[in-house]
Amino acid sequence: QHITGIEQIKKLKDIKIIASKMLGDTLVTPQTNSKGKLVSKIYVEEFLPTKRSFYLSFVINRIHACISLLIANMTDNIVDLAQKKPESILRLNFELNQKIKSQDVQQISTFLNLPQESLPKLKTFVQNLYKAFIALDATMLEINPVGLTIDDQFVALDAKISFDDNALFRHPDVVQMHDDYEASENVLKAAKCGFKYREFEDGNIGLIVNGDGLALAVHDYLIQKQAKTACYLNIKGGVDEDKIAQSLKIMMTNPKVEGIIINILGGFLRCNLVADGIVSAVNEIGLNIPLVARFEGTNKETAKEILEQHHFPFLTADTLQEATLKLLEAMKEND
């Protein structure tokens, strides 16, 4: 296994040898799960000698509702660095319409101990990245590492960009670059129904919601109760019972999932449609794990009646806290 996925070669003839070893191999890095990713493509680029390198990223800071610029001298695992040595990361926060000023760039330069003569080029480099971050509706733009070349040019030696899915309609060029291979089979199945699905490394509880905020609320409460989320399915905008049923089967057939919480705030998506989808999915594949449904909003009483009319192991709750506690208790009894 090629842990880093990066190989440096000095002779042109070695490209074929190294490439043949990497293609078809399994790549395991901090960015993949423990199963890793099968290598199907290789990028070949020129090696640029550098005299300095550092970490730089722009991210959406959801806590402070701003854009954060993160700078670090080390280019190793930034997550470990943030946890173990948070003081070694420079954080600068910017409002959406706020520009990066000369004093901000000076602060970055001082933090990195860069030569004063590199300041103008550093300013141009950082400002251009910031403009790209906003123009592309990105949620993260990570350069790891930034290299300062021998001739004093700042270069992005590697880059990773995450985009806001809700803004992709403005970026057809970005959509064209999407590669289904990068997504799991379950993610693709959910996407075909117009829904969002995500899996986590740990956890054994599945969440079905109609909004990321509803998922986050349950996720946080599970953590308070020493439990973890295995995956969640966001069926926001769903109005087709068959598509809802197809998506629910993704969750119900996940071997990691030992219990399911459904947290629906009915509005455009009527609660009874979700209930019908649940019944349809269970009728087809069965249900041998606890499931607790919490409905609020449009047709919630009808949804409860639909579930109560069928002799399946469904439980209902009026609040997400009640739903969580009921599920954890049912899972204990199911062991």
Rank of each mutant, 00 (worst) to 15 (best):
T149Q: 04
E45W: 01
Q309E: 09
K304Q: 08
R91L: 07
L265D: 04
A190Y: 08
M252P: 01
I143Q: 08
K160C: 15
A303C: 03
D158L: 06
F314T: 13
A65Y: 06
L291M: 15
E333A: 15
S118G: 03
L207E: 13
I260R: 06
D158Q: 10
V218S: 15
G267R: 06
M140T: 11
E258F: 01
K99T: 12
E258P: 04
S280N: 14
K243T: 07
S247D: 09
E308S: 11
I150N: 09
H178E: 15
Q176N: 15
G286S: 03
M251G: 05
A191G: 13
T32K: 08
K35D: 12
P255H: 09
L27H: 12
T253G: 03
D151Q: 14
F200H: 13
N61D: 15
L129Y: 07
Q107I: 02
G237N: 14
I289N: 01
H219I: 09
E117V: 11
L188W: 01
T4P: 03
V126E: 00
D151R: 07
E284P: 00
Q226P: 03
G259V: 10
K16W: 00
R170C: 05
Q8G: 06
T110H: 10
I63S: 11
A159M: 14
T253S: 13
Q1H: 15
E185R: 06
P120E: 07
L325H: 04
T75E: 04
A245T: 04
P145W: 04
T50G: 00
T75I: 07
P120H: 05
S102F: 10
R294A: 03
K196D: 02
T29D: 10
K300S: 13
G24Q: 07
G203M: 04
N97S: 04
Q116L: 14
D276Q: 13
G237K: 11
L70G: 08
V239I: 13
F312M: 11
I244Q: 04
S20T: 05
G36Y: 06
S68W: 00
Q176D: 15
F54V: 05
K160V: 14
S102E: 15
K131D: 10
K16F: 05
Q8I: 15
P172E: 05
S57E: 13
I250F: 03
N254S: 09
L188G: 01
H310M: 02
L69M: 14
